[in-house]
Amino acid sequence: MTENKKPLISIKNLSKHFGEGETRVDALRDISLDIFPEQVIGLLGPSGSGKSTLLNVIGCILEPTCGQIELDGELVYNDRWLRSDLRGLRLEKVGFIFQAHNLMPFLSSMDNVAVVLDLAGYSASAARARAGELLEYLEVGNRVEAFPGSLSGGEAQRVAIARALANKPRIVLADEPTAALDSERAGIVMDLLRKVAIDQQAAVIVVTHDEKIYDRFDQIFHLRDGLLSQT
């Protein structure tokens, strides 16, 4: 699967530490990692092991201390950010899925998805059309005008996935996407992420503690004390 393809996420010798001297904490230590299109990767580890830090660094939210990050063929970090517009970079290349889905409570399902497309410069009608398609694809097409407050946990998570995929990102970062779901719904979400990885030729990283979905990953990485190891 990976032999003829370039990695979508390529990390080399990445480190991140917080504080200095006695208070220094090494959250990530010399991490190197390549993730290819169609791969769904699991990132496991105890609390405080650096999982969220790694996700934040790959998502260009947190600046590493040193190393290299290449996203979708573009070198974005080489001991410093190489792009000033990191939000634009995220909008263009990265989709985020959260444990608490983080939908805008004042927007309908349709608008929660369309807002990303609106930010990306789509016309209102094109944004709504694409959002409608995605919601249908994720089997919540019957809830387009519903507000997050009236959605079930599974429905809300699907709308959140639709939002993450709206601008066709090739990198999807999911932080505990199944934590609030039962086994059946967790399975459905993982199936959807797999489908997205294949259909959009995307790389998906899932941070999780959820043992019931371990068998859904192509590779599982463990983080412990900032060190990455592959299972």
Partner: peptide
């Protein structure tokens, strides 16, 4: 504040 953080995360510029 959480919605604003989410907007920033998904790429909304400051003007939004």
């Amino acid at each position: 504040i959480r919605e604003i953080a989410t907007l920033k995360l998904i790429g909304a510029p400051d003007r939004v």
